[in-house]
């Protein structure tokens, strides 16, 4: 099966100008390829750079070396070299990301937060909102909360809002960073179901799963992220 997202020699280091210009290498020579309908779990010890890789794939961090190729509207796009407008377009149409923490937008109700990425892709408000409500209900977020901004929600509730927002549009490529970290068993099962459904629909999924039980239920294979050797 052909790849949906692929990296070639991807590397990342940080230069901390405020600490005398010290350079911290984090990733080097990462070659990862994920096919449509496949779920790959990133593995490796804590601090190995799994979250950094996720952020690179989303374009949140800039790559220091290598390429990040993604199939976007049938064409190959190198996200590592794409300009800001193209990255935005890829994020709107092709690439979704569920971070560990919801970035709350003041005063915007939960339902609109979830419906927003759908509307950004051209779905009418009248269609986007029921779809958002449906997903929120599936994730056991009671309807009485849908009209409220999630600022005051618990960690688990916020994560479910975040998940609903990430799964709503059905992105061809979806990045999941610890999607079940603060969820109870019932909701973990719901997330497993969502991931399986997304795979069945042809999404390529890359995830960091702390929870090995969830990981084993959804991941087709593991991709080892190795810590960089400490410079002598």
């Amino acid at each position: 099966m052909s790849w949906a997202i692929r990296t070639e020699g991807l590397g990342k280091s940080f230069t901390l100008h405020l600490q005398g210009g010290v350079r911290i290498p984090v990733l080097e020579g990462v070659d990862l390829s994920v096919a449509a309908g496949e779920c790959v779990a990133l593995a490796g010890p804590s601090g190995a750079g799994k979250s950094t890789l996720m952020r690179l794939l989303y374009g949140n961090y800039g790559a220091a070396a290598g390429r990040i190729l993604i199939r976007h509207h049938g064409a190959e796009v190198d996200l590592a070299a794409a300009d800001a407008r193209l990255v935005r377009e890829v994020r709107r149409e092709t690439l979704g990301y569920v971070s560990q923490f919801l970035r709350v937008i003041p005063r915007v109700p939960t339902l609109d937060i979830v419906a927003e990425p759908l509307m950004a892709r051209g779905v009418a408000r009248e269609a986007a909102r029921p779809r958002a409500a449906e997903l929120l209900a599936q994730l056991n977020l009671p309807a009485r909360l849908h009209g409220l901004p999630p600022a005051t929600f618990s960690g688990g509730e916020q994560q479910r809002v975040n998940l609903a927002r990430g799964f709503a549009p059905g992105y061809p490529v979806l990045l999941l960073d610890e999607p079940t970290a603060s969820l109870d068993a019932g909701n973990r099962a719901v997330v497993v179901g969502l991931i399986r459904a997304a795979k069945a629909a042809g999404s390529a999924i890359i995830g960091i799963f702390h929870d090995t039980e969830v990981r084993d239920q959804v991941a087709d294979r593991l991709f080892e992220v190795l810590p960089m050797p400490v410079a002598a």
Partner: peptide, 11 residues
């Protein structure tokens, strides 16, 4: 550049 990249990975 992209707002979140400039703020999260400033060069």
């Amino acid at each position: 550049g992209l707002t979140d990249r400039v703020l999260d990975d400033p060069q």
